[in-house]
Simulated assay, not measured.
Amino acid sequence: MSTPPVEIPVTWAPRRTRVVLLPVCALLVALFVVLAMLLPASWQLNDRIMMIASGVLFAGVGLMLARPRVSADAEGVTVVNFVRSRRLAWAEIVRVNFRQGDPWATLDLADGTSLAAVGIQSGVGKAQAIADARALRDLVEHHAQV
């Protein structure tokens, strides 16, 4: 068996997005807790609880935005998007696409569908996203030959 073009296991994720979003989410929760404590006395307990719940809800959305990643190992690829994740065997992936203007890479699958791979996105830098998509494409081609 030949050596894969990229050393696996490998994970592609928009790290800068995570570095920004995780502290912002913590700050949101802390801010809403402080706001709930500083509300005027005329506000009731349920109002304060809803204020804190709003902060937790906003932080939850931020954490969902920080979730995307694409991981490859010897058996296949795991695509984790905002809400769902999917495990794919190498044979299920026909092609990796990352066309000019696309916000993220897409995987054409053997069943005729396509799957967004949001973990490889142009928002972190176009050159890096292109390199990541090419690395995944090379892995797909390598495993198609094996």
Rank of each mutant, 00 (worst) to 15 (best):
R69D: 00
L115W: 11
A110F: 00
A89G: 13
G123Y: 03
R15E: 04
V29C: 12
S2G: 04
G119N: 08
A74E: 06
V24W: 06
K126F: 06
S42I: 09
T11Q: 07
V79N: 09
G76T: 00
G55E: 08
L21Y: 00
S85L: 11
V146F: 06
N46Y: 07
Q128F: 05
I120K: 00
N46T: 14
R84M: 12
G55W: 01
T106K: 08
V20K: 04
A36P: 07
L136I: 14
V146Q: 06
R18A: 05
L45T: 10
A105K: 10
G101C: 07
G62F: 01
L35I: 09
T113A: 09
Q100L: 13
T106C: 08
H142K: 02
S114Y: 10
V33T: 12
R99Y: 02
M51H: 04
T11K: 01
Q100A: 10
L136M: 10
G101W: 13
G112C: 08
P103E: 15
A131R: 11
A74L: 05
R95E: 14
L28A: 15
V83K: 05
N46I: 13
R95D: 14
D108C: 07
W104H: 04
E7H: 01
Q100M: 12
G55I: 02
A110W: 00
P5L: 08
A127N: 05
I93Q: 04
L39N: 01
L88P: 07
L35Y: 06
R95F: 03
R134K: 10
A110R: 11
G123P: 02
A131P: 04
F32C: 06
R137I: 03
D111N: 14
I130F: 10
R84D: 04
V77M: 00
R67N: 07
C25E: 05
L28Q: 11
P68G: 09
V80E: 10
V140T: 04
L57Y: 05
V20P: 09
A66Y: 02
